[in-house]
Structures are given as C-alpha cells and as structure tokens.
C-alpha cells in the first residue's frame, strides 16, 4: 500500500471532483507525504478549507476535516486551534478564497502569527465557478470575466504574507513535487503562521482560454519558469528585479522563529492571570 492510501477516505469518497490535468491531486499527495514524514497521528490533524476547487480537498483526507464558507476557513481554523492547541491545523485554500473574499482574514492571521499552516493553491482563476478572473490573474490574461485580458494588477501571495507578518512564507509549484513535500513539512513544523503558495494549473479552463496547452505542457512550463530562491539571491540586484517579474521564485522566502506564537502567548496570559 502506498503512503497516500493510509490517509485517504478511499472507500468513502472517491472518485474525486477534479478535472483531468488538474494539479490539485499532486499537492494533496505532497501534503500527505509531509504529514507522514512528520509522523503526526491522523487524529491530531485538522484540515480546514473554504470554497473552490482546492477547498474540496479535505473531504478526501482521513483527518478531522471542515469545509467551511467562502473565504472563511482561517477564522474557523483559528477558533478550533485556540480550543485545541495540540491540533495541527492545516488550511487548504485557493487564490480567490484566500486573497479576495478571505483577504481580511488572511492578513489578520499573518499579523496574529497563530500556528496555522495555510496552503494556497494558486491557479490564477476561479475554476469551480467556471474560470472567472481571480486576484492573482496576471495582466493581459483571459478569463470568463476578463474576456479582453485582465487589466487588474495581481496580488502577490508571498509578498502580501511577508508584509503582513507571516513568520514562514514559501513558494513552490505543482511540478516540484519533492521540494513541495519538504516545504510543506517545514511549514507544518513551524511554530507560527505559515503560508505555502503552490503555483498550480487549471488546464481545462484557464489554460484553454489562454492557449497554454494541455496539463502536461503546463506542468513543464512551471518547471521552465521557476528559479530557486538560492539562485535568485546570487543574481546582481538589477537582475533580481527582472527575475522577480519573469520567474517563479521558489523555496522558503521567510522563516522567523523569534516572533511569539499567538496560542502560546494567550495560554501564558491565562496562566499569569490564574496565578494571581
């Protein structure tokens, strides 16, 4: 039995809802391998999601799972984490879910530095509803609500997270399966708010509207477009800026282990008050 089988609701919930060529399964697999590597008991994992293609993921996992309302996974996860701090709480969300309708929660969770791991499946469009423009749709790209090419500047998930104070921020792509596995493991282990942006593909809608080729072609493109953060750091400053715009910089972009974590701070406050 493959590692993945131990963690799926195989008898109960398959086949899944995702399209052929969708990369969500790859991210799901990497997440499972990360949890397996860390030897976290299934009972101690709570997986929370919002609404969208990626947010359908928790139902397939044999963990404690919660599929919430659009954009609100982080608040639900925050409530559960504060009550049961020993739970490893993983939020599965998409670009629209996390950054548009749930943007305020995302920012404030970064600020709070609460020990949640947020995995943002960034596929540049709202796939579930039929391929509308999302907050990360690049300029000029066609979606069903930007038929002439998007004129809206896109949100950079990692820059936003770092700016708002998230203490662990990383980027990877659906192509980079092994690095993704170790990045997700590091994010889960990190004590504080961790964000992993996974650049992934929606070949059926976004890919088709922008003539990006089939699933396999789009996956290879992710490889071509990527550059590790280590390689990027070695570039001269003028080339760094250019690379930032043209390349997907992958790897751990920020890791801060000094900022206190929220649930620990809250418990410390309780103990201090109770000792009075």
């Amino acid at each position: 039995m493959a590692v993945v089988h131990k963690y799926l609701r195989l008898k109960k919930k398959f086949p899944h809802v995702w399209c052929a060529g969708c990369t969500n399964g790859i991210i799901l697999h990497a997440t499972i391998r990360a949890i397996d590597k860390l030897k976290i008991p299934k009972d101690d994992v709570l997986m929370v999601s919002g609404i969208g293609c990626s947010s359908r993921a928790p139902v397939y996992f044999d963990f404690n799972t919660l599929h919430t309302t659009h954009g609100r996974a982080i608040p639900f996860a925050t409530g559960a984490k504060l009550v049961k701090p020993h739970l490893k709480v993983i939020v599965i969300t998409g670009d629209g879910d996390a950054l548009a309708i749930g943007g305020n929660h995302f920012i404030h969770a970064c600020v709070r530095n609460i020990d949640l791991t947020v995995i943002v499946f960034n596929n540049f469009n709202y796939g579930m509803t039929g391929g509308q423009r999302s907050p990360t749709t690049p300029p000029g790209k066609r979606t069903t609500t930007s038929p002439f090419g998007s004129i809206d500047p896109p949100v950079n998930v990692c820059s936003l997270a770092m700016g708002a104070g998230a203490t662990f921020v990383a980027r990877t792509t659906a192509y980079h399966f092994r690095p993704m596995e170790s990045i997700i493991a590091r994010a889960i282990q990190h004590k504080g708010f961790s964000v992993v942006e996974v650049r992934c593909n929606c070949p059926i809608i976004y890919g088709r509207l922008n003539r990006l080729g089939d699933g396999a072609k789009m996956l290879l493109d992710l490889k071509e477009q990527s550059m590790t953060v280590e390689a990027w750091k070695k570039l001269p400053p003028e080339k760094q800026k250019k690379a930032e715009q043209e390349k997907i910089i992958i790897g751990v972009l920020k890791e801060d282990t000094k900022t206190p974590e929220y649930t620990e701070q809250y418990r410390a406050l309780c103990e201090q008050l109770q000792a009075l």
């Binding site: 609100r72 608040p75 925050t78 984490k81 504060l82 739970l87």
Partner: peptide, 29 residues
C-alpha cells in the same frame, strides 16, 4: 474568560467572529 482558562479573542470582523465560534464549538467548546 482568560482568568478562568477560557478563550477570548477579538477577531478582525463580524464574519470572522462567527467563523471562529463555529470552529471552536466543533473542537468541543
């Protein structure tokens, strides 16, 4: 609440407060 070991949290908005309440209840609170 903190004096009694319970949780008080001021959330970023009303929607988040309701979400946190649901998450907390499902965790047993």
């Amino acid at each position: 609440l903190p004096r009694r070991g319970g949780v008080f949290i001021q959330m970023e908005d009303e929607i988040a407060s309701m979400g946190a309440v649901i998450g907390a209840s499902l965790a047993g609170a």
